[in-house]
Design a protein around this nucleic acid. Sequence first.
DNA 1: GGTTCATATCGACCGATGTCGATGCATCGA
DNA 2: TCGATGCATCGACATCGGTCGATATGAACC
Lengths: 114, 114
Amino acid sequence: MTDATTAVAGCVPLAAPALSNEEAEATARLFAALGDPHRVKIVNLLTTNREPVCVCNLTRPLGLAQPTVSHHMKKLVEAGLLDREQRGKWAFYSLNHEAVSKLAGLIDLEGGSQ
Amino acid sequence: MTDATTAVAGCVPLAAPALSNEEAEATARLFAALGDPHRVKIVNLLTTNREPVCVCNLTRPLGLAQPTVSHHMKKLVEAGLLDREQRGKWAFYSLNHEAVSKLAGLIDLEGGSQ
DNA sequence: GGTTCATATCGACCGATGTCGATGCATCGA
DNA sequence: TCGATGCATCGACATCGGTCGATATGAACC
């Protein structure tokens, strides 16, 4: 649902004229969320596995401790790229396809302005 | 021309199955290159101004010292997003449209695999 | 050759960030 | 109610990265 607190909410295409400081920072936050190889792998796993995944299923493939995985998931949720859903003891994360398509739109330099 | 030394050369779409460590790191490097608001502004300026820009024309709009601007330009060139061309005393930078479109392709989750 | 100018590199500083063990907080099952 | 389980938070540590002044490099001009 991409509420106003996520980074993706304040973004504007890279080809937009005269990017403001706030727009540049929001865009940078969004890209920075994917600036870590483990977070790239998380998004990759959530893309190939179309179903939500819980933290306990990520620690082993990533080779990271549980607090570290939680840290990365929080970053991705704050960026707006992931959605979090509590199911009993488990926290299930899934891709926010709306945010991902908006991210793709940021880079569409040709179609953006010209 | 995107030679093999740039980050964009080792990238693979986010929707590719079973991302390797190297692919994840190359993709993360590419996103991290746009994970700084000043670098987002640089790409934005190079997109709107279709012509190459020299460092001396970037320090003022960015509000940064010259060595800092050179640092950011180097990062963007290493990522493969910018091309550098020496013209006498000046260094002119321009967008590498091939790399940018490849970056856009990374995020095309739907078209990538499904 | 010497001067000037644009840029790159170096060194240092410091805040941001990735990482993990320990701990806290819910939730579920017995 | 109690122990077990899954996850988030905290605190500490090490590393990375942005920033700038000082300096080096290289090109143009006289």
